[in-house]
Nucleic acid binder design. Structure first.
Length: 427
RNA sequence: GUGGGUGUAGCUCAGUUGGUUAGAGCACCAGGUUGUGGCCCUGGGGGUCGAGGGUUCAAGCCCCUUCACUCACCCCA
């Protein structure tokens, strides 16, 4: 049809949804400030290698989902598919890490992954994320999850579930993965096609398979707990105890596996139980104690998460029984003739200079048409100005909702105090 | 990358076994009320029927190709 279209999976946003976005972002900023987080903004373009090293070479994100481009000097760049690696890069590069103090940062911005779009999944999508660097103790795991939990409540999200799991330290995870490989290998021919791949590529993922038969097979699979050392077990226990202490409901999901390579120990997801279709993770994150070092920084433990703004907005939209009523101008000036038009156009300027949302039709047309328009755009008050009113410098101000009218001088200040009388503006 | 569904007016959708100028509701504009909105009445504008090809005397409808959107899988926020 039309030749001009947005790139697939990249959506335009209009006022209707942006009012929700603004509310969401504002509440997020205020909420995170309570916890002492500062904002960080990093470029959307990064060197390709950052994510290859950060996210993991074998991950789908790196293997097939990145927008890669070549700079004019031949350097391989990409649009960031996630932000944690970039935030780490920024702090390492600018020497923001210090050995003895923690660092907390949050970000809000667009990410890019070239996947097939579906409900709650776009190629350009937006995330809110937060990271804490420098503390290995589970108090951080707890605090960040509580912060996210409370943010969701603050935003009015309902029917959410916090799912948590532990993946152990890398060595523990590797030995668990190999045990899983051994276990599932004996049923190799019974596994679904995807799981046959997973057996080679990432045995942990088999635990997450949706096929009923694979689900049956995994019932007797080895459990992660048997491969964790005492300190990892203790870490997880403290996380659970801390969440309970903060009255945050959660569910331990041993099948919960995260897709990015860098996670260690605690991982979690906030799942929407209704309203999002198949892409039901609103937020996800976990601990990544090895990432900073692997990106060339000092050995620094870290914990963080990211949340999908589109998904949150979808939920908010579905949970809202009715949208906020459209708010129009405080006053619309309607003109009846040429002299009235000149007076109205001058007056509308004066009113706007006094911070009044005033409005007048751009087109020169009938009073009736202007009135209809005033009604359509939900003008709170209307004032009809013609030659007679212009010469007397007085006109009726009518409250649209009730039809009640009072006369006012055609001077900004008088109109403003009359607006207050009608309760349209507080003086 | 794989599979399903859907493409007709700005929006939501009708459109018979293929039949002549393609419809409705909503929205928009004008008039009914020579200067007052909503309700009502009358009229009006607006369509390459997603695109290309084929079959046919004749295609919105049948066939092929293609594109877009959408949902799901893989994966993920």
């Amino acid at each position: 049809m039309s030749i001009l279209r947005a790139v697939k999976g990249m959506n335009d946003l209009f006022e209707e949804e942006l009012s929700t976005w603004r509310m969401l972002e504002q509440k997020t900023r205020e909420h995170f400030a309570l916890y002492g987080f500062g904002e960080v903004r990093t470029p959307i373009l990064e060197e390709l290698d950052l994510f290859v090293r950060g996210v993991g070479e074998g991950t789908d994100i790196v293997e097939k989902e990145m927008y890669v481009l070549e700079d004019r000097d031949g350097k391989r760049l990409c649009l960031r598919p996630e932000n944690t690696a970039a935030v780490v890069r920024a702090f390492v590069e600018n020497r923001k890490f210090s050995p003895d103090t923690e660092l907390k940062a949050y970000y809000i911005g667009p990410m890019f992954r070239r996947e097939r779009p579906q409900k709650g999944r776009l190629r350009q999508f937006h995330q809110i994320g937060a990271e804490v660097f420098g503390i290995a103790d589970p108090v951080v795991d707890i605090e960040v999850m509580v912060m996210l939990h409370d943010l969701c409540a603050l935003l009015g999200l309902k029917n959410l579930k916090l799912a948590i799991n532990t993946l152990g330290q890398p060595e523990e995870r590797i030995s668990y993965a190999s045990a899983l490989r051994d276990y599932f290998s004996q049923f190799q021919d019974q596994l679904c096609e995807d799981c046959k791949r997973r057996l080679i590529k990432n045995a942990l993922r088999i635990l997450d398979c949706k096929q009923p038969h694979c689900a049956t097979l995994r019932e007797k699979a080895p459990a992660i707990a048997d491969f964790l050392r005492q300190d990892s077990l203790a870490h997880f226990e403290k996380v659970k105890a801390g969440l309970s202490e903060a009255s945050v409901q959660f569910e331990v999901m041993p099948r919960l596996v995260r897709g990015l390579d860098y996670y260690t120990r605690t991982v979690f997801e906030v799942l929407a139980e209704t309203g999002l279709g198949a892409q039901n993770a609103v937020a996800a994150g976990g601990r990544y104690d090895g990432l900073v070092e692997s990106l060339g920084g000092p050995s620094t433990p870290a914990f963080g998460f990211s949340a999908g703004i589109e998904r949150i907005a979808l939920l908010l939209q579905e949970q809202q029984t009715h949208g906020p009523e459209k708010s129009g101008p405080d006053i619309t000036l309607v003109f009846a003739d040429q002299i009235g038009e000149r007076t109205a156009r001058k007056l509308v300027t004066d009113l706007r200079r006094e911070k009044i949302a005033a409005d007048v039709d751009y087109r020169t047309r009938s009073v009736k048409a202007q009135m209809r328009r005033a009604d359509r755009i939900c003008a709170k008050m209307v004032m009809v100005i013609g030659e007679r009113e212009a010469s007397q410098m007085r006109a009726d101000m009518k409250l649209m909702a009730t039809g009640e009218a009072k006369s006012a001088n055609l001077v900004a200040n008088d109109i403003i105090s009359m607006l207050a009388t009608f309760g349209v503006r507080t003086p």
